[in-house]
Design a protein around this nucleic acid. Structure first.
Length: 284
DNA sequence: TCTTTATGGTGAG
DNA sequence: TCACCCTAAAGAT
């Protein structure tokens, strides 16, 4: 459950289980974190928040547990002392009364105080988080035009957590498709209306994905395919994971290539390599 | 049983 | 840009 919206969903479930309650059980699998078990036990869980794909479980008294799921970490929320049926490795758990939140497989788990959180190498570099900080379309469009971002390929830029926190490989492809912008283009070569469109898609698709549990296809289109008997994996994305399949809009064959170190998917006709609108800095 | 891939991230050059 | 780290599941043999 890797990208920002999925992590925010997981945080919602963890919060429902333990937020506002006193932790009567705290477990860490890693030896170096064992000393924190007695320290955190008996403290109330004040808040469960997210920073992009990272999660912070804040305990009364100022300590927080930072967790990052990477590709494989997975949260389970259980009741009445039950454990999930899984062959995975338990890495972190909080119990509060009948409720228990358990993190499996994750390898990045740290206990932070205010200072170490402020100076944290991952957290300190994050850009705005769409779900927890709600930047506006204008702010994001302006950010795209900043000197440090404007010359980079957009496909790579959207993966950079320092630009916007929480986007990942499927969201970047889906966002660029919805905005009809080729992943190899750069902000400096885009028209203002294209940057506004892109900013709007970043916000809209991230929020939609949070609501739809990972489906970026338009709700109407997804419902239509679902009604026709399609499986979830078949009505989830516009372009992600669909190399060589037909574009859902124009029927052209979708393409895939490594961009920013990971495989990116796009439609060669819906997302032309050249600007279609007015140029940002025309000769007029 | 081995190899590859994956919705992620780091650091060296 | 690349090698590498992490863990799990899918695919190839």
């Amino acid at each position: 459950m890797p990208e920002g919206p999925e992590i925010r969903r997981a945080a919602d479930r963890v919060a429902a289980a333990v937020e506002g309650r006193v932790a009567d059980e705290v477990f860490f699998a890693f030896e170096e974190l064992k000393p924190f078990e007695p320290v955190l036990t008996g403290r109330r869980v004040d808040e469960v928040t997210t920073r992009g794909k990272g999660m912070l479980t804040r305990f009364e008294g100022g300590l927080s547990v930072f967790t990052h799921n990477q590709l494989y970490g997975r949260w389970y929320v259980m009741r009445n002392g039950r454990l999930p049926k899984t062959g995975r490795q338990l890495r972190f758990a909080i119990g509060a009364g009948d409720h228990r939140a358990l993190l499996y497989s994750a390898s990045e788990i740290e206990v932070l105080d205010a200072k170490t959180e402020r100076e944290h190498p991952f957290l300190s570099r994050l850009g705005p988080d769409v779900l927890s900080q709600a930047p506006t379309v204008e702010e994001l469009a302006a950010r795209l035009g900043e000197a440090r971002f404007r010359s980079r390929q957009l496909g790579a830029l959207l993966l950079d957590q320092g630009f916007v926190a929480g986007l990942g490989n499927y969201l970047r492809a889906e966002i660029l498709f919805e905005a009809r912008i080729h992943p190899r283009r750069r902000a400096r070569d885009c028209a203002d209306d294209e940057l506004t469109r892109l900013a709007r898609s970043i916000l809209a698709l991230t929020k939609r994905t949070y609501r739809t549990l990972g489906i970026t296809l338009s709700p109407a289109r997804a419902a239509e395919l679902k009604a026709a008997g399609a499986k979830r994996s078949e009505y989830r994305f516009w372009v992600y994971g669909r190399a060589n399949a037909a574009c859902r809009v124009c029927e052209k064959t979708l393409r895939a290539e490594g961009i920013g170190g990971r495989k990116c998917f796009w439609c060669p006709t819906c997302q032309p390599a050249e600007a279609t609108g007015r140029r940002r800095r025309s000769s007029s």
